[in-house]
Design a protein around this nucleic acid. Sequence first.
DNA 1: CGGTCTATTGACTGGGGTCAACCAGGGTGG
DNA 2: CCACCCTGGTTGACCCCAGTCAATAGACCG
Lengths: 254, 254
Amino acid sequence: MNNTSEVVSLKTAKNKCKDCHAARYCLSSKLDDLGLANFTNIVKQRKPICRGERLFQSGNPFQSIYLVHSGSIKIYIESRDGEQQITGFYFPGDVIGIDAFETGYHRASAETLSVSSFCEISVNKFECMTREMPFLQHQFFCQISRQIIQQQKLMLLLGKMNSKRRLATFLIEMSGNMHLQGCSPNVISLSMSRYDIANYLGLAIETVSRILTNYQDTEILDVTGRNIIIKNKNKLLSIANNCPETQIVMAQSA
Amino acid sequence: MNNTSEVVSLKTAKNKCKDCHAARYCLSSKLDDLGLANFTNIVKQRKPICRGERLFQSGNPFQSIYLVHSGSIKIYIESRDGEQQITGFYFPGDVIGIDAFETGYHRASAETLSVSSFCEISVNKFECMTREMPFLQHQFFCQISRQIIQQQKLMLLLGKMNSKRRLATFLIEMSGNMHLQGCSPNVISLSMSRYDIANYLGLAIETVSRILTNYQDTEILDVTGRNIIIKNKNKLLSIANNCPETQIVMAQSA
DNA sequence: CGGTCTATTGACTGGGGTCAACCAGGGTGG
DNA sequence: CCACCCTGGTTGACCCCAGTCAATAGACCG
């Protein structure tokens, strides 16, 4: 690499990551100044991409992993006969693309739900970087374990819960998500369609629609298209947790 | 550490990993002699443990990751109200326990299906070791991506497939597994109960039983308790892949 | 022998999928 | 401006797949 250009990029780039609005969720969040400078130097920031575009898709060669910088994105896999299952929704701070290490090509596909931007890190550089920076490696392992647990929770939902409970669980999860993003946990602004929700939860879209109106009728929610207000969180929690009829006040899902 | 004892353990331990029957599936499979010696030195080999014992369970502090050395084990998570979902079966060479990095305690539980033994690596040493040995790190990342894809496939199964297809898919997977272990892919010796199969596939055990007899009646399988012989693999594949009635000869699931 | 655990088989039922009609919002174009 | 279509969402009617409940059988063991 050229030395002078590196110094320049280091200066500007460093500012980029330091000033980033997603810094506190990012893999780089606990790096010291030098580490962050290195990190910033290796990360390529991509332009925003439109809603409905694919960041990568099944079969693409594995070149980079991506950090969600803004927006939201769904990951899904397809069966041989073309049926697809959304396996997760990802938001700022999440790492995506790590399904491809073993085979060298992606098995899942990633499609944006809204205008989104991503930071791209080449696989090779990423592997080197994690070796050199213990903190970064640890953060990455944490991120992975989080995703594995998240997926396992979805399996529990798909394998064992009835439709009302699935939707309640989903809404509680989204509520937590809004809270993390710094918004009120009781005002959910969904970035995904009914179709995506139904697909994710293993339901028909009619069922999702019916249950939402039911929750509306029973004063649990206020539904206006993709904007949902939680009016009775205890009730929602008791459905999600399958508690007996008495509404139990309890801490939100860990 | 004591120097002399280290040399001794290095010699004996090195032999242990080199002679291990699971060496070619192991994380250590591509290490050079020095690397393998280091690896062997850090790995603690545990005594065999009985069927039905828990290697770790939800809530346990995260101390080690484990490599399956022999036998088989199920991983499951539990909901607040005690319902559980098996999220995977693991066999020699697989790494388990990586769900706990983020929180520092296990969220899932692991229970053996047969007499099994495991190699234990303390988390701290593991994190150091992967930094020092690029090959090992890469193998670990591969293992992770494999598990993520495996889990995503299960979500697809749980979210989109009917019961017959679920069971066919499971049997094809188990067949591939037997093949990997060096046995005939058409002779499956299940280490898990009907209850575990049903739980894993999100079905009732009666349904599993019924479908197995159906496959027996239609000459697809020969079922004798936990021993299953695949008599018509094409048919089984065509059910698993949801092909139109004509049996399509195709390569096994990638 | 009885007790327990695992598995099989039958009868019945209900949750949620499917099909179809309908509605609302937002382009687009004449 | 209205007419048109298209996409996304809601609602109703109907039915089937798989869950539930129950009875039974085999395997294993003290």
